[in-house]
Design a protein around this nucleic acid. Structure first.
Lengths: 219, 219
DNA sequence: TCATTTCCGTGGTTATAACCACGGAATATT
DNA sequence: AATATTCCGTGGTTATAACCACGGAAATGA
């Protein structure tokens, strides 16, 4: 367990908690480190999610299963990623997703109930922890909201412009994006080559310039 | 203030709190009822959101303003709706949205800091309230996630099928949806008549039957 | 440095959705 | 019951995106 203290305090959920305090806090909220083997199911669809998890080592897949059994990869989780937190916090009775290890590894499991309810000794970390949890969910909310606004637009052109404009307040008109073409296409939910085509048209129309992942908005 | 106690305990944020307890709790967390006039700004883009709000009466608009001033209506909030909660919980410094009253009305404003930090007298409602807040954010998360999965699909047909299939676990193959055509089109982020066209094709292809808002999945 | 792989633009074709206009059915209004 | 309004399907057209295949540039690596 101790071997992970170093990385734990870098995780958002434990932000502001010193590594020497971690031990007390973790036992206070009943955290357990679990080793997982490749292909092991950590949370099965249909179960009630009682614990949220954080990946300590290895890689997990978050999978959605159709009611008729088709499986669909929603996300991959690596070190530091948190999973099942929304399901726990929302009190969902039957998980719609399955979490499975794709490599050997380890996860930290936290009981949501114990996280929420203050321990008898009113440990100071509790409020911090809950605040972090709120922050985590809220941030994810905002991100999802932003992305939703973008991908609900109907043309690639408008998606690109909207996306780029979100950088303007921070970066001005010269924008370095954190994606390559393929990733940008994924993010905008469009096809890569269709994105390239549209970028070329936008350049032709004098809307943007670009080279690799640096874009200039011409206004 | 008291005039609203009746409806307050129906709100998700206050679920599980008895109306006779509301008074204590609200003063404990420093809630204030504010009357608003049509066109009054409740939260301006650029400000730091310190308080989250709940609509008690009237209607609000949640507006996003482009960096170059274009305004875009994101949502309308009516009685019972909560707003700015994600921004508060996430601790964002500058609100990207503006909240404005479109009719005269009233809102309940809650200081996020006081909501999070237990009061000295360790009132029992606090944990409840925070749990509710977590639940709210988590539920929104899940909804956003679901919607995102749908609208990131590339064809209307797949969107419709995916959407309908989410009802199967509860309703079986005969599905009554909560939307009319226009609303469904909005939800799926497609054009109404394009949706109608596609529904007709899906019927022709033997995938579905439908009459008004009742659909049958043929498998 | 040469080989290999990844990344990305491009042409061309096809599939799909948006858009527009209209009318009929259903619903609400008086 | 008559009228107005909303809802929704449909035809037809146009715009847009997906899809496929390819090749060259850039990055990686041996």
């Amino acid at each position: 367990m101790q071997e992970y203290y170093g990385i734990l305090c870098d995780f958002t959920l434990f932000a502001g908690i010193k590594s020497e305090e971690l031990g007390v806090m973790l036992s206070c909220i009943g955290a357990e480190v679990v080793s997982v083997k490749k292909d092991q199911i950590i949370l099965a669809a249909g179960e009630k999610p009682e614990q949220l998890g954080i990946v300590l080592a290895g890689q997990l897949h978050i999978i959605r299963e159709d009611y008729d059994g088709k499986r669909d990869l929603l996300a991959a989780a690596v070190q530091g990623d948190i999973f099942a937190e929304a399901l726990c916090c929302a009190g969902v009775a039957e998980s719609p997703i399955t979490v499975m290890a794709v490599t050997d590894g380890a996860v930290l499991l936290l009981s949501f109930a114990r996280l929420l309810h203050s321990c008898p000794n009113v440990c100071a970390f509790h409020t911090r922890l809950i605040g972090n949890m709120l922050g985590l969910l809220a941030n994810k909310n905002i991100q999802l909201q932003n992305k939703m606004e973008i991908i609900s637009l109907k043309t690639i052109r408008s998606k690109v412009l909207y996306y780029l404009e979100t950088f303007v307040p921070k970066q001005g008109n010269q924008i370095k994006i954190p994606f390559n073409r393929e990733e940008l296409a994924d993010y905008l939910c469009v096809e890569r080559s269709a994105l390239s085509h549209e970028l070329a048209r936008m350049k032709r129309d004098g809307l943007i310039e670009y080279r690799k992942n640096v874009f200039v908005l011409r206004k």
